[in-house]
Computed example of a mutant assay.
Amino acid sequence: MRYRKFKADFIFDGKNILGEDKVLITNENGVIETIVNEAEAGDGVQAFKGWLSPGFINCHCHLELSHMNNVIESGTGLVDFLITVVGKRGFEKAIIAEAIKAADTEMYENGIVAVGDICNTADTIPAKHVSKIRYYNFIEAIGFTNNNISIVFERFIKLYNNFIIEELTDASIVPHAPYTISSAMFELINNASAGKIVSIHNQETEAENELYRTKTGDFFKLYQQLNINTGFFQPYGKSSLPSYLTLLSKAKNLLLVHNTFTTQADIDFAFQQSKANQQQVFWCFCPNANLYIENQLPDIKLFIDNDCNIVLGTDSYSSNYSLNLLDEMRTLQTHFPFLETERMLQWATYNGAAALGIQDRYGSFEKGKQPGILLITNFRDKKLMQTSAATRIV
Rank of each mutant, 00 (worst) to 15 (best):
I376V: 09
L384H: 00
E366M: 11
M344R: 00
D117F: 03
S199L: 02
K252S: 12
L222A: 03
F261N: 02
I310G: 00
N69Y: 13
R4M: 14
S388C: 11
I72F: 02
Y244I: 14
V394F: 05
G30A: 06
V311S: 00
N277K: 15
I100P: 00
D117E: 10
F186T: 07
S74F: 08
Y179C: 13
D13T: 12
D21E: 14
K22G: 00
A94P: 13
R89F: 11
G372R: 10
R134Q: 13
Y244C: 05
A354N: 06
A276F: 14
T105D: 07
T246E: 14
S322H: 07
L297H: 08
E366L: 10
E187H: 12
I139Q: 07
F48M: 12
G30D: 03
L159Y: 15
L254Q: 04
F338K: 03
I112M: 02
Q370S: 15
F81M: 01
A102G: 05
G90I: 15
R361N: 12
D43T: 15
A192N: 11
N306L: 01
G231M: 05
I164Y: 05
Y136T: 07
K49W: 03
N227S: 04
T349F: 01
G50T: 09
A94L: 10
E92F: 12
P235M: 10
L325T: 08
D268K: 15
F365C: 04
F163W: 04
A276V: 13
R380L: 10
D104H: 09
N37I: 08
S53I: 01
L65M: 10
Q333T: 12
E342M: 13
G75K: 03
T180D: 01
V174H: 06
F12H: 11
N227M: 04
K369V: 12
K275L: 14
D381P: 09
L226P: 08
R155K: 15
N110Q: 14
V281Y: 08
K301S: 12
L241A: 01
I165W: 02
W283A: 02
T124H: 05
N147H: 14
I139V: 15
C308P: 10
